[in-house]
Design a protein around this nucleic acid. Structure first.
Lengths: 196, 196, 196, 196
DNA sequence: GACTAAGCGAGACGGTACGTCGCGTCTTAAA
DNA sequence: TTTAAGACGCGACGTACCGTCTCGCTTAGTC
């Protein structure tokens, strides 16, 4: 047991988990409105000070809590030899996430802070937007190689085309986030609006 | 006969304008963070009570203040005989709005409340989303009639395709809202991603 | 019909009564806490302005409303040939008044304003304290004449001795204001504390 | 062992004193009308929240502030072998208190709330009325033992006889609260009104 | 029988204070 | 040294009544 682990490492980790769990519970119970530093503290049996020691404010905490959860889902999508199918898989994973009880309402509550606080915006872009784009990239590359997509197709643009409408529904139009969205979106984007 | 015209019409209108002006000033100076009912009151020389008499809370006030401004812009777009051009005009008007100093930051600050408070969401949909869709509708109809668009093209879907990516930039990816966006977006949506 | 009555005398009188009635209703329903100028206005079907035109504030209104009621009760007490009995009648009338649903709670709610606002204090003294003392005076005089009371007995002092304890119960000690109080008070004051 | 002594004892005590001092200052400067939680906060350099954390409202605060001051005065009066003198000492202490710049006006302003709010009424009775009665009790007992007072003389009644008139002057008749009152009151009560 | 001025209803308004919520900082004692 | 416990300063919230202010309508008594 000559582990060079710092002094109170164990304790620290334990309280960190308790905090993040409490945060997720509160978020899925009542959205950001229910997310109060005091509520997190009392539910996790931790002092407010301990929370502030590790997170700048409740927004950073919330972002951490919900983002940690979803990072594993960004595994590179399998090459199934069919660009359309691969794109549908990509879009569906986004739809599923935003339709979930934890992530959807959390994001609704976070977005104002996220888009307004530069520090938080940077974090979100680094930890969510870019990883998602990097998940999409190989699909696009394979699609171009296969001749399914126009050469020069830009990942960034495709990404915006595919996820923009989903977020628009979540935040503004209130349209449903159902499982059919993937197909419809991908087909629309692939075919375009012009008649053949 | 029984025209029940409000009693103190003049006074009411005067204070209403003062309040909305102050609201817009504060919003464009410091975004929603600077928008405090107390600040609005003191800047407009109006009592806090007067504000609360007319608006449920600062969110309704903010929505009113920024939305009233833009309603006139939703005039039906001219028929110029070219669907692509008409769509670009539509998209550019949205881009310009979101890129403006007042509307963009206001919307960033409002979106969380907007998507989370059902009452506010309804208002936004009725006063913004739907009018915008009704602006787009005749363009689509003319496009189909001219043979520029696939028969059966759905306004709702096109609307989401066109504005979703813009809002996504404003709120998440931080991409630029420049004047070139209109062309790129419209062409992407019209042509689709498949090679010809 | 050469009455020099002001213009809208009838109307004026009607609204005055409506206001005072509403005031008494509110006072007996919820004490001074329920007495709101707006409540009086809406209940009496009168405009707030009309109320303020006639009374300086709700305290003057309340005083008027409850005092008008009791003035008739200050009839000179009959000479029944028995000073003790006459005093008991006097005290009982005060006890009954303070024990009533309208007057007791009203006075509790009014007393702070009454003792603190000089104008109101003067009114109360002129319209209540002094008339009451003048009711007591002939009893004392007759008592002295009969040899029931010490010559030189001061009305003011006797008045304070008799009513002070009643008000003390109403306002501070919370003791009961029952019908036995009259006898006990009068006997105590007449006999004194010393053994015979 | 488990002495759960409050955590931030020092701080707590400091702010408590500051608050009570400010309260007393405001009360003696302008009576209850000047007693505003916000004024107390700003004068004591304490946050409004801190005040509300410890006192339910400004009435409880006021009661505490003025009552704490007077509790020490309720020491048991010395046995000087003369019932009349002891009673005069008792009455004079009450008169002096009510004649003081802090206590008199404070009580005038408090009495309405005091007699109307059951919780506050209970506090006042427990902390003021009863202790005062217990101060009087041994005087009465000694008086009876000495043969100065009728056997069976009731403390409660004597208390009401003695203090009732004082409060009546303070609150209603506006009579002077001078130092001669003690003698006059006590003699009146001891001798009664009947001729010898 | 129409005219006209006082009085009135309706209710918006500026203002003061209320009591509450949640933030992020701080102090202290115990582990 | 880190933590739990929790008091604190602060800024804003939304509410309750106050007393003042327009503004037309009603309504007598006058012409």
């Amino acid at each position: 047991m000559t582990e060079t682990i710092p002094n109170n490492h164990r304790r620290t980790e334990r309280s960190k988990h308790a905090i993040l769990d409490a945060t997720r519970e509160l978020l899925s119970e009542g959205g950001v409105r229910a997310l109060t530093v005091e509520a997190v503290a009392s539910r996790s049996g931790v002092a407010k000070t301990t929370i502030y020691r590790r997170w700048r404010d409740k927004w950073h905490l919330a972002l951490d809590a919900v983002v940690i959860d979803i990072i594993p889902q960004f595994a590179y999508p399998a090459d199934v030899g069919d660009t359309r199918k691969e794109l549908v898989v990509f879009v569906d994973s986004v739809v599923d996430l935003l339709a979930s009880h934890l992530y959807g309402p959390s994001l609704q509550g976070l977005v104002s802070e996220l888009s307004t606080n530069p520090q938080l915006a940077r974090l979100y872009r680094e930890q969510v937007v870019e990883p998602r784009r990097e998940t999409l990239a190989p699909i696009i590359e394979r699609g171009i190689a296969r001749g399914d997509l126009r050469p020069g197709t830009d990942v960034r643009t495709v990404h915006e085309f595919l996820v923009g409408p989903i977020f628009y529904r979540l935040l503004f139009s209130g349209g449903p986030l159902d499982s059919g969205m993937g197909t419809r979106l991908v087909d629309g984007i692939l075919d375009g609006l012009r008649p053949d």
